[in-house]
């Protein structure tokens, strides 16, 4: 079974037509990969479906806007993958 990061990277590559080999765990979806908020909705849709979760994009955006979190915490892919794992674990708890 592929890792969460691999699944996320594959989704991003397919959804945004970004070469898979340029996507690394350190990639920032916005700053490095140039994904805008509308394209990220397609990614969120695919992630929601693939993992059976609902990425809390509104909550994350609010936290970033309020200065309580940085975009790196949610949009660097290794961190995004960790957040997904947490959401999957919480769903099964």
């Amino acid at each position: 079974m592929s890792s969460t990061f691999d699944q996320v990277a594959n989704i991003i590559a397919e959804t945004c037509d970004i070469p898979r080999d340029t996507i690394t765990p350190e990639s920032h979806a916005i700053d490095d990969l140039g994904i805008d908020s509308l394209d990220f909705l397609d990614i969120a849709f695919a992630i929601d479906k693939a993992f059976g979760i609902k990425l809390p994009l509104e909550k994350w955006t609010q936290e970033v806007n309020d200065g309580k979190a940085t975009t790196e915490q949610y949009f660097v892919l290794k961190n995004l993958s960790a957040r997904i794992d947490e959401l999957v674990a919480a769903k099964g708890a």
């Binding site: 909705l41 969120a44 849709f45 929601d48 609902k54 990425l55 994009l57 909550k59």
Partner: peptide, 9 residues
């Protein structure tokens, strides 16, 4: 089709 956080399809 899908209800996401802040968006719906």
């Amino acid at each position: 089709v899908h209800e996401g956080s802040g968006f719906t399809i």
